[in-house]
Amino acid sequence: MEIGLTHYLTLSALLFSIGLFGLLISRNAFRVLMSIEIMLNAVNINFVAFAHYIDPLAIKGQVFSLFIMAIAAAEAAIGLALLLLIYRNRVNIDIDSFTTIKW
């Protein structure tokens, strides 16, 4: 069977679900950040696959995936800075213990 758009979309859905699984199950905040990166990558695969199979001349999907990469880098930098700040104040990065602003 030839590899088509369906294969890439299914793979992307699988990766997204794996990222969601990691996001829900992890108690370590670093692992939550890594799971978010996996989910962003799943979305990127979708964009590039659509650009290749549906829009091969204007390649909007490729340009958009580059923008997503920049946003992901910004998100990782801010998230890690916040985590280091929390670690410096509390010496703990268990996500279940971040309850200071819980109402």
Binding site: Y8, F30, V48, H52, A77, L80
Partner: peptide, 24 residues
């Protein structure tokens, strides 16, 4: 690379596989 998006593939290696992972 399989989807003929060469530039995106190289940026993926540069930004994700090296940059973000190393920072994390």
């Amino acid at each position: 690379f399989m989807l003929s998006a060469n530039f995106v593939a190289v940026s993926q290696v540069l930004i994700y596989a090296v940059g973000i992972v190393l920072v994390i």
